[in-house]
């Protein structure tokens, strides 16, 4: 997961790496995702999310569609 100056730079990178599809998000969404994902990572109570739970986190941030699906 990389940071680009804007969509134009991300598109150039995709073209250079022959990647048809990518997932993008704003820094604000990325920060919210990081908070949801990692705030408790070093706590004893932490456990890995189930696929359903992880997809629910994505969906809650508007990250939906084929790219964000966790099942084949």
């Amino acid at each position: 997961m990389l940071l680009f100056r804007d969509e134009g730079h991300a598109r150039k990178w995709r073209e250079a790496h022959r990647i048809d599809q990518g997932g993008t998000m704003t820094l604000q969404t990325g920060w919210r995702l990081a908070q949801l994902w990692y705030t408790d990572k070093r706590e004893p109570r932490w456990r890995r999310r189930t696929l359903d739970e992880a997809e629910a986190v994505f969906a809650g941030l508007g990250l939906v569609g084929e790219f964000w699906r966790l099942r084949p």
Binding site: M1, L2, L3, F4, R5, D6, E7, H9, A10, W13, R14, H17, I19, Q21, G22, G23, T24, M25, T26, L27, Q28, T29, G30, W31, F58, E66, F67, W68, R69, L70, R71, P72
Partner: peptide
Amino acid sequence: DIRDGRVEGSGLIHFGVPAR
């Protein structure tokens, strides 16, 4: 930057590999 719980800066986060 992260300051007081808010993100500051510009740019677009890009994922090149599908989540699954």
